[in-house]
Write a protein that binds this DNA or RNA. Sequence first.
DNA 1: TGACAGGAAAATA
DNA 2: TATTTTCCTGTC
Length: 284
Amino acid sequence: MQRYTEGQYTNWQKISLPKNFSLERTLTCGQTFRITEKGGTFIYVRGQSVIALRTEKDGLLFSVYGENISKEKLKEILGINDDIERINRELIKRVPQFAKVIDDTLGIRIMRQEPFETAISFIFSVQSAIPLIRRRLDALAKIAGKEIETPFGTFNLFPASSALKSLSKEEIKSLKLGFREKWFEEFTEKYDEKKMNVIAKLPFEEKEKALLKIKGVGIKVAHCIMLFSMNELSAFPVDVWIKRGMEKLFGIKGTTQKITKEGRNLFGPFAGYAQEYIYFYMRR
DNA sequence: TGACAGGAAAATA
DNA sequence: TATTTTCCTGTC
């Protein structure tokens, strides 16, 4: 086990705080799951790192345990490099009445995560609420991920694909995935990082088609994977909250497929941001 | 304790 | 091709 103790390794680094950035909203709006908060400090377990984050008056402080993450990489992960003013202007230009939704949800950024962890997270998410998804991911990490001790507690990192390929039936059963179990098994058996990286670089339509071939990945999960881990800001994942929001705000209703298409047409290249705003707006 | 929440896949029309 | 049914765990 890798151990870190307070003082010795707690090495806070600082990023100047961007305008219109909310650490809390970004981390807790359902795009990522392994987050805990203690006294204003957020602990975000991601890939092979544990990242502690807190905002102060003039900056964002962070310290990393496990695999190192540079300042630049962290800014990318948190969507800080996105030109949010321009994105919001573009959304309002297309849909003027959306300004009030943006006002209420300001500060959310689209995070940039890894396809492997994101795909498993959203296969786990099918017909499930956020706390349940999180418990499943923690259970999986506990079984197959490396343990790491930090000043903030002990965590298990996300398992490597090789570790998931060698899980026993009993271990898989213990995750209580229900009908998602066979999808998870097939995904880990077939997973090939190189192939996933190729998919990540395909044009939007081909990318969507390739993801939909994965068992357990339908249109909503495919759009989550594209938006949160493949840099497709026009992806528009439609779940029950987005269905409710699209009907309430715009009178648009119908199948997931129809709302996905209409949402993308309505909001354009940054539809993914609009989607996160609607999600947060409807759940708050 | 039965109703309800939550997407994908398979079955059916 | 479009709609309906089934799948499972957990909460209230």
